[in-house]
Design a protein around this nucleic acid. Structure first.
Lengths: 157, 157
DNA sequence: TATTGTTATACTCTATAACTATA
DNA sequence: TATAGTTATAGAGTATAACAATA
């Protein structure tokens, strides 16, 4: 893309209020256009949203995590996580082993199957976002690309 | 804000893939920083997420809506909506009256109390977005403002 | 006879409480 | 005695099925 013509670089209200309002509009539309499909895919896979979130946490963490820590991360009770994880172990998505340094604690890691499962859902979510982006005009998409880059560059590892 | 210096207007990948990826990063962070508070506020108010969504639909529609239509809009079963609405009626948030042209159908409208309730949650969500935006650097926020404006301008009424 | 909404029933997920095993 | 996790039990929300009222 070329540097934009000056005609496009009009002043924009960059107050927190204005930006938050526009962000709210964007979020609402993004949800409506991308969410329903994932919802039905998760349900069809016979898995729980909580279980998908468990997979997501395990996917992004570099080292194993225990039930209690996972519970705290997701803001759900320990028994709820224990049950969710138990289901994942039975499905072969997660490996649960005793921590050798404290045998009360169980360390959780993704199996290859679990990683594939999570990546399938992540791909579905990404496809929804892509469709949303592809529906924009070229001008909208280019402006958004330039506006997101500094922030996304900092936030993503 | 002045027109940006040329140094800032570097080329950015505006492909659907790149923009969708950055949008995904933004969304994830937005959730993590803004959602937990609303979650606890809803629970503390003794109301259901489904009921809040019902209030939101009624708030934005110009005319009354029936149970069946609300059910379809939210993607939940008619009995689930019937129960959710019943709770809202008992709390005085929603008015439910027979449609005079088809007395099987019940028309739903927000009461003043219902509108206030929804606006309280909307304000909470907005405050979360504002905090998220206020945490950015000036450069990030200004770039985002310019990038969101065309899209948000089109999407919002 | 078909349709709109409500009530009945069963199921899933979650939280609190009770429990087991390690520390 | 305290802590990590599991199992027991109860509660909330949803879906399917059965029903009542109206078309």
């Amino acid at each position: 893309m070329q540097a934009p013509s000056l005609a496009k670089v009009t002043r924009v209200d960059a107050s927190a209020e204005a930006v938050a309002a526009d962000l709210g509009v964007l979020m609402k539309h993004m949800f409506r256009t991308t969410n329903r499909e994932i919802f039905s895919a998760v349900e069809e896979a016979g898995i729980t949203f909580t279980q998908v979130k468990c997979l997501g946490i395990l996917d992004e963490l570099p080292s194993p995590i225990a039930i209690g820590a996972l519970s705290e991360t997701l803001g759900l009770s320990v028994p709820a996580i224990s049950r969710a994880v138990d289901g994942l172990v039975q499905r072969g998505e997660v490996k649960r082993t005793e921590d050798p340094r404290d045998r009360r604690s169980k360390l959780l890691t993704l199996t290859a199957k679990g990683r594939r499962t999570f990546e399938r859902f992540a791909a579905l979510r990404f496809a929804g976002l892509k469709r949303f982006v592809a529906d924009m005009s070229d001008e909208e998409r280019e402006a958004l690309a330039a506006g997101l880059r500094p922030l996304a560059g900092r936030l993503s590892p």
